[in-house]
Design a protein around this nucleic acid. Structure first.
Length: 187
DNA sequence: TATGAGATCAACT
DNA sequence: GTTGATCTCATAC
């Protein structure tokens, strides 16, 4: 089943754990989502917290679209826009288990270890060829493909990574025990 | 294993 | 002028 906009019209805190186990492909390259983080516009750590700007305008648009931004001047990070009421919330895709187009990913990343291809937001974007050129594209149209999971995964919850504001909120979700996470979950 | 610095730039103050 | 939803490599334990 292909995920549609109705899926993304819900609360970002409901969507984020539901994305664990889904399959994301970009031009046929990608894998199973194993780690995400939720950002809501009431969250000081969210880009949309201080209102709409040129960069985050996509977050204020309809759900089911892709928001891409540059991180630390070096990397690209991939987000899915959530919630239909213009609340400007999004889910950051942090890690994938590579399943499709491994040779292509290895070429883009210049590393061979499977566990190192997509185990972090910057790595993942590089492996999938994500840049600002994909900002604002719809998730249910090429080059994107998002397929719902076919099993009920065991989900780990923890605090988010690499932020300084609202750093204690447990809004990071991951596939329990997966070796493809950017970092292991506590406990 | 752990900690630290450098890369590099757009958004924001 | 400062900061950051990161990654990689180097050096220290």
């Amino acid at each position: 089943m292909k995920l549609r906009k109705r899926f993304f019209g819900r609360s970002v805190h409901a969507i984020a754990p539901d994305l664990i186990g889904a399959t994301l492909l970009v031009n046929g390259v990608g894998g199973v989502i194993v780690e995400v983080e939720a950002y809501h516009h009431t969250d000081p750590a969210a880009h949309s917290y201080n209102g709409m700007t040129e960069r985050n305008a996509v977050m204020f648009g309809p759900p089911g679209y892709v928001y891409v931004y540059r991180s630390y001047g070096i990397h690209w990070c991939l987000n899915f826009v959530c919630e239909a009421d213009g609340s400007a919330s999004a889910v950051l895709i942090r890690a994938l288990q590579p399943t499709h187009g491994l040779p292509q990913m290895r070429r883009r990343r210049c590393v061979s270890e499977e566990r190192n291809l997509c185990s972090g937001p910057g790595k993942l974007a590089q492996a999938l060829g994500i840049t600002h050129a994909q900002n604002g594209l719809a998730l249910d149209k090429p080059p994107f493909e998002l397929h719902a999971r076919k099993f009920k995964p065991d989900i780990s919850v923890g605090v988010r990574i690499g932020i300084t504001k609202a750093a204690d909120e447990p809004w990071r979700y991951g596939l329990h025990g997966s070796p493809y996470l950017s970092r292991r979950f506590e406990t």
